[in-house]
Design a binder for these strands. Sequence first.
DNA 1: TTGTAGGCGTTATCAA
DNA 2: TTGATAACGCCTACAA
Lengths: 310, 310
Amino acid sequence: MATIKDVAKEAGVSVGTVSRFLNGAEIKERNKQNITHAIEKLKYKVNPIARCLKTNKTHTIGVLIYDLTSLYATTIVKSIEQKMFEYGYNIFVCDYWNNPELEYKKAKLLIEKMVDGLIVFPSSTSANYLHTIQQSGIPVVVVDWGVPGFECDHVLIDNVNAIYDAVERLFKQNHKKIGLINGTKSNYIAKERLEGYKRVHQDYNMLLNQKLIKMNGFDKMSGYKSFLDLFDMDDPPTAIIACNYDTTLGMIKAINERHLSIPEDISVMGFDNLGLSDVVQQPLSIIVQPTKEIGSRVATLMLKRLKKRF
Amino acid sequence: MATIKDVAKEAGVSVGTVSRFLNGAEIKERNKQNITHAIEKLKYKVNPIARCLKTNKTHTIGVLIYDLTSLYATTIVKSIEQKMFEYGYNIFVCDYWNNPELEYKKAKLLIEKMVDGLIVFPSSTSANYLHTIQQSGIPVVVVDWGVPGFECDHVLIDNVNAIYDAVERLFKQNHKKIGLINGTKSNYIAKERLEGYKRVHQDYNMLLNQKLIKMNGFDKMSGYKSFLDLFDMDDPPTAIIACNYDTTLGMIKAINERHLSIPEDISVMGFDNLGLSDVVQQPLSIIVQPTKEIGSRVATLMLKRLKKRF
DNA sequence: TTGTAGGCGTTATCAA
DNA sequence: TTGATAACGCCTACAA
């Protein structure tokens, strides 16, 4: 592989001149031509590793993700990558298998590989190590979850308004009793989504019936159970909203088992259309998270931080 | 950040000794202790970038993938990563957005970042650039597709036997007319799956009815159309097999629209269970690709190549 | 076994 | 503007 030295010799200048030319400094026109020729002739390519040794910049961003097969997460990562790529950055995706221990290990690994920044889809224990990383001067951006006890840039969707709008739509369709299948009370996102549910009831002067609110968890089984609980009530809701993808799946499972017709038997609204609509028989209204925009925001935040470091 | 030099000074030895210790050479017991202490005290970490500059090894493998949101592909990548990680390698996933031009660009980028090897989920045009990369001494392993005109390690699933076994199972359930929803004739995988279909008919002395074989494409719409074509025949099959994930989705769509009962109206078999079974109402038999094993094989091949380079 | 010194391919500094 | 040269952090002969 040709080096700067070779190019310099071939072009009859010094390595310094070549390096400066490579980095966009102004040099004499004749040298410019000679160097360009030499580079082409020798098929010279800069060695980013060597460059990094000096500059301490790899132009690589690490993305720590809980599961590479999570459609929701990868969709966002795609969007992040698209934007970062425009600005000359590359993405290094690492899957931590929903394992906090591995998460820490992989984070360290990414740092060792000298990524310029870290983007994390955090677990509940992320706060511990993220703190250290951030203090070492590496920008950290957190996606989608709030990490309690850790201050940094983060992008959350507007959970409050997502549910607000969904319920509002149902109100306008004349539904008055709307069931909510939500995560547990300790879950950050669940809390926000509940807030939206409450707020829209207030704004529309609808009274809040606690029995219509199920906060059993964000997993599929909870969705399944919550749906049946709601449906089997003495005075059941006329519409039900599932607050994330997995509970939506559970809800569909229940609907299938009971052979219910939508919207004749009940109206439902799901969350995150990740290819569902094609295989599900029932006409399903789905709340879509703006994954594209989330990714773009994350990238923007990261780029801002990276610039600040100069 | 502490360097070897600092450690050497702290431990009262030379950098050479520290380096040798770091790389597993035998040194005097007392020095070993001193160095270990110094490393802990200074929180020293080797700088992999600097090391790479000398060794030309990054212990990083690039994975080029056509779509980060393809469940099938990411499932395999997970398995690859798991194995490579055991051997101290890291995975660098790059999404080329099903865009051959971008594919080439990202491949170059990965090489520039000095990955030790490249794993590719190829497109139809991959052969061109992969050739060059391989010749430059970087091991290349290709997943899932044969790349015509390019010889290298690759892992394919046993498409022939996958369909063979599926049809055999249906035969044993007394089905005699089995429809096949397959990709186009030019598609490598489709050809193999057709071969399995033919072979099992031969082995079981069943005559082959060309009308039962639909080779319209691997996309969802083709699956949808092919299914209806088969179902609406004068003498329709009693069972139908869809040969990949997308055609399976199309088939389900058709089944839903016609309000068919499975297996009363017809028996069906799909491909790749990527979360389908939970949301689909019908009892669906599914041919599962051994993604776990594919990934493991890919990793093994890559590791073998990497060793050979010494 | 250890220390010294040179080199890996860049960039950055400082005279000229 | 340019050239020479010293870093960057590590590895590895070679000599001791």
